[in-house]
Amino acid sequence: MSESAHTDKLSVTVPSEVAAELRSRAGRGNVSAYVTDALIRQLEHDRLGDLLTELADVHGPVTEEELARARAEWPGR
């Protein structure tokens, strides 16, 4: 991830065991980058959920038949 020209400093509170694993996985000095990458992935996930909700509102829910057809056409199946 490239660093943005503008950044905001945030403060978060997490359980101690989560913080310990974060520090272990992120490495010294890389916690902010690790958390930023995780937040970007979550925000993308949230936006996809918003899109699915909007599509269902406009076109109706996906039927089991449509899901089965899509799964059958998915590569690697």
Rank of each mutant, 00 (worst) to 15 (best):
M1S: 13
M1F: 11
S2F: 12
S2A: 15
S2R: 15
S2E: 15
S4I: 12
A5P: 00
D8C: 10
D8Y: 09
D8S: 13
K9Q: 14
L10P: 01
S11C: 11
S11I: 12
S11A: 13
V12W: 08
V12P: 02
V12N: 12
T13N: 14
T13V: 15
T13Q: 13
T13I: 14
T13P: 03
T13H: 11
T13R: 14
T13E: 11
P15Q: 13
P15D: 15
P15T: 14
P15W: 10
P15R: 13
S16R: 11
E17A: 10
E17N: 12
V18C: 07
A19V: 06
A19F: 09
A19S: 12
A20S: 11
A20Y: 01
A20P: 01
E21K: 08
R23G: 12
R23V: 00
S24Q: 10
R25L: 14
A26K: 01
G27E: 05
G27C: 07
G27T: 02
G27D: 04
R28K: 11
G29V: 04
N30H: 09
V31E: 06
V31D: 00
S32N: 11
S32M: 04
A33S: 10
A33Y: 05
A33F: 04
Y34F: 13
Y34T: 03
Y34W: 07
V35T: 06
V35G: 03
T36V: 10
T36G: 04
T36C: 05
D37F: 04
D37R: 15
A38F: 08
A38T: 07
A38R: 05
L39A: 15
R41K: 12
R41S: 12
Q42Y: 14
Q42P: 01
E44Y: 05
E44L: 09
E44F: 05
H45K: 12
H45P: 00
H45S: 13
D46T: 09
D46R: 13
D46P: 05
D46L: 11
R47K: 14
L48Q: 12
G49P: 06
G49I: 06
G49F: 05
D50L: 09
D50S: 08
L51M: 12
L52H: 09
L52R: 11
T53I: 10
T53S: 10
T53C: 09
E54V: 04
E54R: 09
A56R: 08
D57K: 02
V58P: 01
H59N: 09
G60M: 06
G60V: 05
V62A: 04
T63C: 03
T63I: 06
T63W: 06
E64N: 07
E64D: 14
E64F: 02
E64Y: 03
E65W: 01
E65A: 09
E66G: 01
R69T: 10
A70R: 07
A70C: 04
R71K: 08
R71Q: 05
R71W: 02
A72F: 06
A72V: 08
A72Y: 00
A72C: 01
E73N: 01
E73K: 00
E73Y: 00
E73T: 02
E73F: 00
W74F: 03
W74N: 04
W74V: 08
P75C: 02
P75E: 03
P75I: 03
P75M: 01
G76R: 00
G76T: 00
R77L: 03
R77Y: 00
R77G: 03
